[in-house]
C-alpha cells in the first residue's frame, strides 16, 4: 500500500464535525466533473491511490477512469457497502424487500434450487453475491485492496458473527484476487478476533489521532496494539474531524511505528499539497 491514500468523504457530504460543512461540500461536488478535478489535483501532487465508498455516484467516476489513459496506473481501494443505502431500504421495505432490491436478478431464480429456503441455509452465498454486485462498477480498474466498511465490520464483530468476516476475507482473496481489508472503530477487539479466527497479519483501517477521537477503549490501548505490528495498518481520521491542526496531527501519526499508510481527504489544492508535504517531511519510522 502507498504511504498516502486519498479518501472520498468530502465528495459525498460526509463530515464528522459539521453538518453545515457537509451541506456545502454536497453542493460543491454536485457534478461528477468537480470530483474528477480534485482527483486530478491529488494525482498531480503525487498521490496514486483513491479509497472510496461504493456510492452510486462512483460508477460515473469509474467510467472516467476507464475512458482516460492517464488513470491507467491509478489504484482504487473500494469500501463496501454504502450502508445508508441498505439501512434506508430496510426501514422502507423490510429485509426481504431489501434483498430483492439489491441482489442481482430475482432472488428466487438466483437460488434456483429451493429459493428462499436455500438462501436461509446459506447466508454466506448471499453475502458473496452482494460483494460481487457492489464491485461491478470497478470492472477493469486496479483494485488491489477491497475494504469492508466499519459499520458492517463492527456490527459483525459485536454480533460475534466472525464467519461473515471470514467469508468476505476468502471471497475477496479468491474471487477478486485482492487483499481484503477491514475498517473498524474497534481496532484491538477486531485484531484479536481475526487472529483467533486464523487470519494472520490482516489489513486494517482505523481511527488513529492524537486526541483519541473514535479510538474505542482509549488511545493508550491503541498505541500498545499499533506498536506490536500485528497488522498492516491504515490510519484514518488523523485530523480528528478537523479538531487538530494538520502539522500537529500528522507529526503524531507519522511517529507511530506500525502505521503503514495514512488516509486523508481534502477538497482544495492547498490542503492536498500541505498534507502530502507534511507526511513526506515527517517521513516514516524505520
Amino acid at each position: 500500500m502507498d504511504r498516502i491514500l486519498f479518501g472520498d468523504n468530502q465528495f459525498f457530504g460526509v463530515n464528522h464535525s459539521s453538518d453545515e460543512k457537509s451541506r456545502a461540500q454536497t453542493i460543491k461536488f454536485q457534478k461528477d466533473e468537480a470530483i474528477v478535478k480534485v482527483l486530478d489535483i491529488a494525482i498531480d501532487e503525487g498521490i496514486n491511490t483513491f479509497m472510496c465508498t461504493t456510492h452510486d455516484r462512483m460508477a460515473n467516476i469509474c467510467d472516467v477512469f476507464r475512458q482516460n489513459e492517464k488513470y491507467r496506473d491509478f489504484q482504487v481501494f473500494p469500501c463496501m457497502p454504502y450502508a445508508h443505502k441498505y439501512a434506508n431500504s430496510v426501514t422502507e421495505v423490510g429485509y426481504m424487500g431489501t434483498i430483492k432490491q439489491f441482489v442481482p436478478g430475482n432472488i428466487f431464480s438466483t437460488f434456483a434450487k429451493g429459493g428462499l429456503a436455500y438462501m436461509k441455509k446459506d447466508f454466506s452465498s448471499l453475502a458473496e453475491l452482494m460483494i460481487d454486485a457492489e464491485l461491478k462498477m470497478f470492472h477493469g480498474i486496479k483494485t488491489p485492496v477491497i475494504w469492508m466498511q466499519n459499520v458492517i465490520t463492527d456490527l459483525l464483530l459485536g454480533l460475534g458473527m466472525t464467519e461473515f468476516l471470514l467469508t468476505f476475507y476468502r471471497h475477496v482473496k479468491e474471487k477478486h484476487n485482492a487483499e481484503p481489508g477491514f475498517i473498524t472503530m474497534n481496532l484491538p477487539l477486531l485484531l484479536n478476533t481475526l487472529e483467533k479466527a486464523g487470519i494472520e497479519n490482516p489489513t486494517i483501517c482505523s481511527s488513529i489521532n492524537k486526541i483519541g477521537f473514535r479510538m474505542s477503549g482509549g488511545k493508550r490501548v491503541y498505541e500498545e496494539v499499533i506498536a506490536q505490528k500485528r497488522c498492516r495498518l491504515v490510519a484514518m481520521q488523523v485530523l480528528a474531524a478537523g479538531a487538530l491542526p494538520p502539522a500537529e496531527a500528522l507529526e503524531y501519526v507519522c511517529s507511530l511505528d506500525g502505521v503503514e499508510s495514512i488516509l486523508f481527504g481534502a477538497s482544495s489544492r492547498a490542503n492536498i499539497h500541505q498534507t502530502k508535504t507534511l507526511i513526506d517531511n515527517f517521513g516514516m519510522v524505520k
Partner: peptide, 15 residues
C-alpha cells in the same frame, strides 16, 4: 464547539 471536544470515548463503537 465541535462534537470531537464534547464526546467521551466508548468501549465499543458502532454508529
Amino acid at each position: 464547539k465541535y462534537l470531537t471536544d464534547l464526546t467521551e470515548n466508548v468501549d465499543f463503537y458502532l454508529r
